[in-house]
């Protein structure tokens, strides 16, 4: 494997050592084993943090796939963070995706709200009375301003709490592509509400 190393002065000493040993024909086996141990520990920590259970098969799968991704992308590491922080995000992504998929195994994905208004009202703590006109406009926007695909994605993710990567898996697409669909749907809905005279306040941080 040919790896273009970041400039030495960019990396802290530990990160530079990780990159050097992983790319070295002499040292890479030991470095890979050390990295795998680190990823496995991170996967077990995250599984325990999220579930409190013991899913070691999932930890090994996540560490395996993360290691493959990291080695394939080693030449893209530029030292913007410590090497271990950069590596951790790969294994945490794998764990998160697997846990969400496992939680939805065998469950039907609700793509469309049968009773959209009821669902909207039920999810609004302020109650229906003062939100009535706004919710009606929002419901109408979901029904009329969006394409069927945009409506399915928006309802599933934001009202039915379907994880985006679970939905992406079922629909044969990617998290990024679905988020683009969700983003476009939200943009259309805000435009629909603005055209109906509803001023949307800026979010508070």
């Amino acid at each position: 494997m040919t790896v273009v190393l970041p400039a030495p002065d960019v990396l802290d000493q530990e990160s530079a050592e990780w990159v050097r040993t992983l790319a070295s024909p002499l040292d890479s086996d030991a470095a890979i084993a050390r990295l795998y141990d680190l990823l496995l520990r991170a996967a077990r920590f995250e599984i325990h943090r999220r579930r409190g259970g013991f899913h070691d098969d999932l930890a090994y799968q996540a560490a395996d796939d993360a290691l493959t991704a990291i080695l394939a992308k080693l030449d893209t590491y530029r030292g913007a963070s410590r090497f271990t922080t950069w590596a951790y995000k790969f294994v945490l992504l794998e764990v998160g995706v697997r846990l969400r998929k496992r939680a939805w195994e065998g469950r039907e994905i609700p793509l469309e709200g049968d009773a959209l208004e009821t669902r909207l009202r039920g999810r609004t703590p302020q109650g229906a009375a003062e939100m009535g006109e706004f919710l009606t406009a929002l419901r109408d926007g979901i029904r009329s301003a969006l394409t069927p695909h945009q409506r399915e994605v928006l309802v599933a993710i934001t009202l039915n709490d379907v994880p985006i990567d679970v939905l992406a898996d079922r629909l044969g697409t990617t998290r990024g592509a679905l988020y683009k669909t969700l983003h476009d749907a939200r943009h259309k809905l805000r435009a629909h509400l603005a055209a109906g005279g509803f001023a949307l306040e800026e979010e508070s941080e």
Binding site: T158, G176, L189, L200
Partner: peptide, 14 residues
């Protein structure tokens, strides 16, 4: 819930 449906305003990353 409204924020969840309408999402963040302003530019955001993919």
């Amino acid at each position: 819930m409204i924020d969840r449906v309408l999402g963040p305003r302003g530019p955001e990353l993919t």
